[in-house]
Write a protein that binds this DNA or RNA. Structure first.
Lengths: 353, 353
DNA sequence: CAATATTTGGCAACCGGTTGACAAATACCC
DNA sequence: GGGTATTTGTCAACCGGTTGCCAAATATTG
């Protein structure tokens, strides 16, 4: 079969074609087709539809592909199919260590399943978040929203276009990965009750944070169960700085134990209290949430309700990838367990001197 | 193209208006061409070649585009042009906080200039890194390698195909962003000398780490200048755990001040020494590198030589984007300044009791 | 006002795969 | 062997932009 059926299809049309495949330009299925002596569409099938072509042809094509060092062009594939083997992850704040483990979990799972992770952050703004999500929609197969700030309807709207998985929040009709706060919180509160505390303060997070609301509910319920007083305080922002700022209110509240929306608040709060001469945990116990990187750098190291963040990230990625491949419930909610990590910042209340 | 302020997203009224292109298919330049009564190629030009079409036609097309809520299909654009408005960032370890600020800096700059950041990690492995880089090459316009582990030749090979910027390492013929360690180190060593120290230990990082070598050189030079003894110790890994493990050697070395390759090592080292009853800084001074998140959580807070990591990330992104747009030196090296951040973990050596 | 220079818009050929329809080749059955 | 059921490979029409070339339209100039 040496006779060319279609003689000079590629006759020089005057176009500046970089015909010399000088190492640069990549091999295409047309090149493979020529080498293997088959039609390009056969090459395409051999490479992406297992079993569609005969074993003999398959081998022929694979050899040619290997010889030419062929790699599919992702854009050429994405154009007709819409599939990109890519998914997006939008986090509220890249520098917030809460998300580090989520990012890593998602990235690891993505790579493992031959997907690429595209990252964006919303800077804690619902508008930025929506913009980022919209922008990504065009280029990804699916989206993971970690602690989204936009409202439920926006999330559902996006979820109508492409598979979406939400972390740290429950949205009706959208698959979610949420830590179940109750176990960890009740362990924490019971520990505080056992150590002689009677009044507990909860420092809340951002108003739009679904998780902050759940944690406050959990704290209330657990306190009721243990017959402790519970009071809710507001923070300006869920950061170390926000924690410092809330120290006044904490002292004014008369609570002897504090749970904060997250570890950053707890760390800032502890720093400020210690700077003012308050001894932790003798005079006040502090418990954070999440067990972020650095939570054990403090003196005393921070007691905290751990959320398995890495698991959240990889769980969300798995959920999403299953969805993309047609497996799994379209709206399953994955619940992961929380647990108390008892360190030095909480303990027995010493009688006031 | 600004977001429509009118929040009628949730309003069920206007929804019926959408014609056949309701769910999936997005408007194309052909749709616009039809509405505007021009040729698709004219639409393409109006939208991407400023000034190529008359103002009148331009307006016509822009209006039609707005009406149809048109967004270009990135794949269709990438296919013929190869441009994707995307660049990759490969870091050695996603969970290492050193990279958090780098990631954020790069992400912020990317978003600002309308690029998308694709993230991958090498898990501290040269092989994984090369694989990740290769994989990305197909889909990005350029690549940033933060603290790369692969060897210079591999980097240069990659750099021949697409623009590459390296952070935390100098590679001949490739644009780099490197903190200039000398200022920060000499400040640190002078401070130690002034506080009565005579022997300084340096705990090194990974053998392949270019930056570790530079830091050791810097420490040696500064110590020579200040007439201090300098001794080099090896670490098993550049983590908190590695820092704990090196504590033995540090004590055995007889040094009264330690600089560690990075903050994680410093933190682990300090924890271990304190656990053994050593008082920091009275008996030993500890100085880290980088000023990572959490470096000030410790008691005493960590003295460290700060590298402006966010600046490295954004600087690398800027360098890369300039390169992509034809501006800037093809192999410029951007040097950023380091400085000593004096906190509590270093100070005057108390006379041994 | 004619002649030339400059804009402006249209045509069509790409970029590199995917896929439905179909025919040729091969296998299977009686 | 003839006839039907299956494989297997080919054809051709996409996917949605980009861009070189050219001609028509318009502007500039002598």
């Amino acid at each position: 079969m040496t006779e060319p059926k279609t003689p000079d299809v590629a006759a020089p049309t005057g176009l500046v074609k970089k015909n010399a495949r000088d190492g640069k330009s990549n091999a295409t299925i047309y090149d493979i087709a020529k080498v293997a002596g088959v039609n390009p569409s056969t090459v395409s099938r051999a490479l992406s539809k297992p079993g569609r072509v005969s074993a003999k042809t398959q081998k022929l094509i694979e050899d040619a592909a290997a010889e030419l060092n062929y790699h599919v062009n992702p854009f050429a594939r994405a154009l007709p199919t819409g599939r990109t083997n890519t998914f997006g992850l939008i986090v509220a704040d890249i520098t917030n260590p809460t998300f580090f483990d989520i990012i890593r979990g998602a990235e690891t799972t993505a790579t493992l399943r031959d997907y690429t992770l595209v990252l964006a952050e919303s800077a804690e703004s619902a508008v930025t978040e929506l913009t980022a999500a919209r922008r990504m929609m065009a280029t990804v197969d699916g989206l993971i929203l970690a602690s989204p700030r936009m409202d439920d309807d926006d999330i559902r709207t996006i979820a109508r276009d492409k598979p979406v998985v939400v972390i740290n929040r429950e949205v009706d009709g959208v698959p979610c990965v949420v830590p179940d706060v109750n176990k960890g919180i009740s362990e924490a509160v019971r520990s505080l009750a056992a150590n002689g505390h009677h009044k507990v303060a909860f420092v809340a997070g951002p108003a739009q944070s679904w998780m902050s609301a759940r944690r406050w509910e959990g704290v209330q319920a657990a306190c009721e169960w243990s017959r402790l007083d519970a009071v809710r305080l507001e923070s300006t922002k869920p950061t170390v700085d926000g924690g410092r700022q809330v120290a006044r209110d904490v002292r004014a509240s008369g609570a002897t134990a504090v749970l904060t929306y997250n570890d950053l608040l707890a760390i800032g709060l502890m720093q400020e209290l210690q700077a003012a001469g308050v001894v932790v945990p003798d005079q006040i116990s502090i418990v954070g949430f999440d067990d972020i990187f650095g939570a054990d750098f403090t003196t005393p190291p921070l007691t905290t309700v751990r959320s398995p963040l890495g698991e959240c990230g990889s769980g969300a990625a798995t959920l999403l990838l299953d969805l993309l491949h047609g497996a799994g419930e379209p709206t399953a909610t994955l619940r992961v367990e929380t647990e108390l990590v008892l360190r030095g910042s909480s303990g027995r209340l010493l009688p006031a001197g």
